[in-house]
Simulated scan of single mutants.
Amino acid sequence: MSILDGWDGWDGWDGWDGWDGWGSGSGSRGPRGNNAMALLRSREAVVGPYGGSGQLRMPRGTADLPEAHDTDALMSWSRDVRHRILLNELLSSVQYEASVGRVMLAHGNQLIAGVSRPNSKLFEAQANLVEEWAIHRAERAAEILAQQKLNLAFWDAIVPLNPRTTPFTIELILLSVAFTSHVVQRFKHELNCPRPRAYSPRIQPLLAEPGYSVLPSGHATESFMLAGLLASLIQPKKQQPPARAAEQKAWFDETSLQMHRLAARIATNRVVAGIHFPVDNAAGQLLGVTLAEFIEHCALGSQGRGWIPREFLGTHGLLTGRFEFDPFDRTQSLVEPRDDYVKTNLDARSGTKVTAPIEMIEWIWGKARAEWE
């Protein structure tokens, strides 16, 4: 799924672009068109006739041009412009290597994540599971419909997100979702796996079928990325009085758990709706968790935790027609050593920490993190 398809269309909050009553929808503070004639007359009265007064430069503390390549200049640009600049920084930091049925994502010469697709027999067998899960459609229909696009109301219900108090957190969320969407669409294109109804006319999906491939699940990828990203941002300060530290840890642990439960439910709802297989969610969780770690690394570099390179092996024997996605099952853990349908290289994590952060991603992360301190 793409941010251009409406993941940033949080309609209830889009109005904050015009917080001052006269900002344009793009975030610039310029007059609306119906003020043009009034401003024309006002200028004539206020400025008076041309007087040839020469330069009347606004004081900047220097007579020279503003500093070039100044990361702090991002603060002067509108949010949509910052979004494009920062998205370009993230996208240009990764490379893809695709072979038949397999895609690898890397940062320089270091693996971030890889996915190889299952064979058609697994998808055909899992179609029976998708049909079984259709029994839950009636009770989950409201959620399924509300979660077609990124709906931050679900996340705000767990951790407070507000355009006035956490504007940079919201910017970082939309940036990270856009980056993740670009990555997952490249994986989907290369792996090219049909959706469930291609295997059975009994599926009859609840939603219109998206116009792209099924593996990995975009909702799972983006939701688990978002759960990991927010968990990193809201971590309590390390230096706290013991009593306060215990309180904050209890809040953080519960909040993080609920966010990961939400990510799992959003992913599962796509299977219930009949447009994904459980195996799609397993691949999406792996990609999303790893991308959250990578985005944090782009901001923190060696001061962060690095990321764990992981690969999803779709043809592994443990993936059967009865495989059910359950991220809270320890056998499906992504933070412990694995060498089955998931390969985790824990030893490589220390190596990922040595690469430098991306300066502009470090800037937006710092702004967002400060909103939680």
Results as ranks from 00 to 15, higher is better:
7 W>Q: 14
8 D>K: 15
12 G>S: 11
13 W>F: 09
14 D>I: 13
15 G>F: 13
17 D>S: 13
20 D>Y: 06
34 N>R: 12
36 A>T: 09
38 A>M: 09
38 A>V: 11
39 L>W: 08
43 R>P: 11
49 P>D: 07
52 G>W: 11
56 L>V: 14
61 G>N: 02
63 A>L: 12
64 D>R: 12
66 P>Y: 05
69 H>S: 13
69 H>W: 10
69 H>T: 08
72 D>I: 06
76 S>A: 14
78 S>Q: 13
80 D>K: 10
81 V>W: 04
98 A>Q: 12
104 M>T: 15
110 Q>L: 15
113 A>Q: 01
117 R>Q: 10
122 L>S: 02
123 F>E: 01
127 A>K: 01
134 A>I: 03
136 H>A: 15
136 H>S: 14
141 A>E: 15
142 A>H: 09
146 A>K: 04
157 A>W: 08
162 N>Y: 09
163 P>C: 01
163 P>H: 03
165 T>S: 15
167 P>W: 00
169 T>W: 10
171 E>I: 02
173 I>M: 05
174 L>F: 13
174 L>N: 14
180 T>F: 04
183 V>Q: 02
183 V>S: 01
184 V>I: 06
188 K>I: 05
188 K>S: 03
201 P>V: 04
202 R>N: 15
205 P>W: 04
210 P>M: 00
213 S>T: 12
222 E>P: 02
229 L>Y: 07
231 A>N: 11
235 Q>I: 09
236 P>D: 08
237 K>Y: 03
239 Q>C: 08
243 A>V: 14
245 A>Y: 09
260 H>W: 10
266 I>D: 04
273 A>N: 03
274 G>C: 05
279 V>I: 07
279 V>T: 04
285 Q>I: 03
288 G>C: 05
289 V>Q: 06
290 T>K: 03
296 E>I: 05
297 H>E: 10
299 A>Q: 10
302 S>W: 06
302 S>Q: 14
306 G>D: 07
309 P>L: 10
309 P>M: 07
310 R>M: 07
316 H>D: 01
317 G>R: 13
320 T>L: 00
321 G>Q: 00
332 Q>R: 02
338 R>G: 04
340 D>S: 13
341 Y>G: 04
346 L>M: 13
356 A>Y: 03
362 E>A: 10
365 W>K: 01
370 A>C: 06
372 W>S: 06
